[in-house]
Amino acid sequence: MIKMEGVTKSFGSNHVLKGLDLEIARGTSMVIIGGSGTGKSIALKCILGLVTPDAGRITVAGGTSDRDAFLARFGMLFQGGALFDSLPVWQNVAFRLLRGSLAKPRAEAREIAIHKLRRVGLGADVADRFPSELSGGMQKRVGLARAIAADPEIIFFDEPTTGLDPIMAGVINALIREIVTEMGATAMTITHDMTSVRAIADNVAMLHDGVIQWSGPVADIDHSGNAHLDQFIHGRAEGPIQPLR
């Protein structure tokens, strides 16, 4: 479904991606893990076309990435929610349904928005509030509702549990897993949170030093035999990954 081959990206002398190879099969949930600054977000932005790779090839559903066609069947949950604070919640959720090629009548778009809000555990009373009136966990849920509003085939989750308490993080993880399974969507998640990894992932890829160090089914991460992955999932200071002190 999504394939990255030999993708490189540098910013000046900082070589962030050094030949990234990654494949995400249709209908599966891939979680990319790795330390801060290892290029997880850059890899994601390369797929989205927000950052142009220096070299390599990215294909989506067999064809070289045509961004407009790709984005039309795509949804994303941003780390901070990235809700539009000038719009009420329901218009955030229905943003794509109120304009462009997927535009629907306003009443229908609102109805779909309220349905999606319910799907993520928020009542209709939230629809007319503004994002600044919501807690962090509620904003994350609204972001999730927006990501699934147009029933996308591909969903990206950028640090979905960052800044949330463990209970709310568990709720979001469960929602993501349910939604991905229910919709049959292809999902790619970036996270540091190992609880999220185990809850969300079908497959895991460990990114370090600009390349994928290990990838495989989530069931294998505890006995991968990969020193990078072992150090990361156990949070050890000693190992091949040199932490900045």
């Binding site: 932005k45 984005l71 990235a82 604070d85 794509r96 304009r99």
Partner: peptide, 16 residues
Amino acid sequence: TMKVTEQIDALITLST
């Protein structure tokens, strides 16, 4: 502010 809070990126991902 929209840029630093990723709202501009969100617009792009919403085909806008």
